[in-house]
Amino acid sequence: MYDGKLIIPGLLIFLVLMISPILFNGLDAGPVPKPEKPVGVTKCVKSAQYMRTSHMKVLDDWRDETLRDGDRTPVEIDGVKYEKSLMNGCLKCHTDKKKFCDECHVYTSVKPYCWDCHYVPKETF
């Protein structure tokens, strides 16, 4: 072993960096997000699995249709009309941003820019 004085500390720093996520978490995966389900409503505009992966796509499309094309006709699915709106559509059932949106967004470090324009719904407590 030559120049071990420099190589060994360097190697140790590298190895610690590589396993730093394991050290950071300390074997605790933390709480799994549990977004609050709306009371009394069982259906959404799409299936739960689709919404889990692609709700942002729905919101993005709605934004383009309403704001850019001026098309605000409600979406009708199985006889139920849904307004193409974040505030008057989604948040009508999913009333609590904190308990619904933020649960998963905070967990996965996603910061959607919805609230750059929209007002965060008033907390009622």
């Binding site: 394991i22 933390g30 699995q49 889990r52 992966t53 996965t108």
Partner: peptide, 19 residues
Amino acid sequence: FRVDVVSIKQLTMGLATFS
């Protein structure tokens, strides 16, 4: 394709915590 990031994070966190 868009995947369910929450499920994926559960998997990766499981890996990072040896569970």
